[in-house]
């Protein structure tokens, strides 16, 4: 579904991604862990063709995203850390606009249906979204993904800053999407939820995937231990780099 092969990206002198290899199958929730600057957002940007790779390929359902940017975007949905919408439009109007951009169209009732499936209160649907909390906007983001009938989802720290209840609701939604067979790639700092909701975990450091785990085979304590080990190693390398420079 989602595949990165030797994916490399440089920003000026900085090598943000160094030959990343990864695969996310349908029905997988692949959680990308890693310190800030590890390259998680860069990976997602490359899948969205927001920026071009310097080497390697990113593909969606076998289609190279740089060769078929529009075709692959029909299959993708993207939920950023902050789902940004048109504040002067209602949730329904926003949903309709983005669904139409994705080449789909539904009746008013169907749009309401999507919004209620993601748990948005019915009375909020016709309110302008500038009054929405972050949790509500993230829900609209999921509704957009649902309406688009996306085969693969790219989520970039979607639950950062959400309260535990909202965060939990969001995870429930992801599980629903997973059961529909979508391939989900999510960057996150939430180790606990990564093990709870995710099927696989990838740990990134300095543009490289340094470890991959299946959540069924590890406990929460294991995840934390392994993650911290890698981070310490990174710190060690960073210190070495600093002293030799």
């Amino acid at each position: 579904m989602l595949q990165a092969v030797k994916l490399t990206k440089r920003y000026g002198g900085i090598e943000a991604l160094k030959g990343l290899d990864m695969t996310v199958e349908g029905g997988d929730i692949y959680c990308l862990l890693g310190a800030n600057g590890a390259g998680k957002t860069t990976t997602i940007s490359l899948f969205l063709n927001f920026t071009e790779p310097d080497a390697g390929t990113a593909s969606v359902c076998g289609l190279d995203v740089t060769r078929e940017p529009l075709e692959t975007k029909k299959l993708l949905a993207y939920i950023p850390e902050q789902v940004m919408l048109y504040g002067n439009l209602t949730a329904l109007e926003n949903l309709r606009y983005f669904a139409q951009l994705g080449g789909r169209d539904y009746s008013r009732e169907e749009y309401r249906g999507f919004l209620s499936r993601v748990g948005l209160q019915p009375e909020a649907v016709d309110r302008r979204v500038k009054t929405y909390s972050k949790g509500m906007r993230q829900k609209v983001g999921v509704a957009i993904a649902l309406a688009k009938q996306a085969r693969a989802l790219l989520l970039d720290e979607p639950t950062a800053g959400l309260d535990p209840k909202a965060s939990n609701e969001f995870s429930e939604l992801l599980l629903k999407l997973k059961s529909d067979g979508a391939a989900i790639l999510m960057a996150t700092h939430d180790l606990f939820r990564a093990r709870e909701t995710g099927t696989r975990i990838g740990i990134m450091r300095e543009g490289r995937l340094v470890d991959e785990l299946s959540t069924g085979e590890v406990t929460h304590a294991d995840v934390e231990k392994i993650y911290l080990q890698h981070m310490h190693a990174g710190g060690h390398y960073a210190q070495q780099g600093a002293s030799s420079a």
């Binding site: 969205l48 927001f50 940017p69 529009l70 075709e71 975007k73 029909k74 993708l76 949905a77 993207y78 950023p80 902050q82 789902v83 940004m84 919408l85 048109y86 504040g87 983005f98 951009l101 994705g102 080449g103 957009i144 688009k148 790219l154």
Partner: peptide, 14 residues
């Protein structure tokens, strides 16, 4: 600046 550009361009729009 509104953040909607990334939202739009995640759709099949060049």
């Amino acid at each position: 600046e509104r953040g909607t550009l990334a939202m739009i361009l995640a759709h099949p729009i060049s």
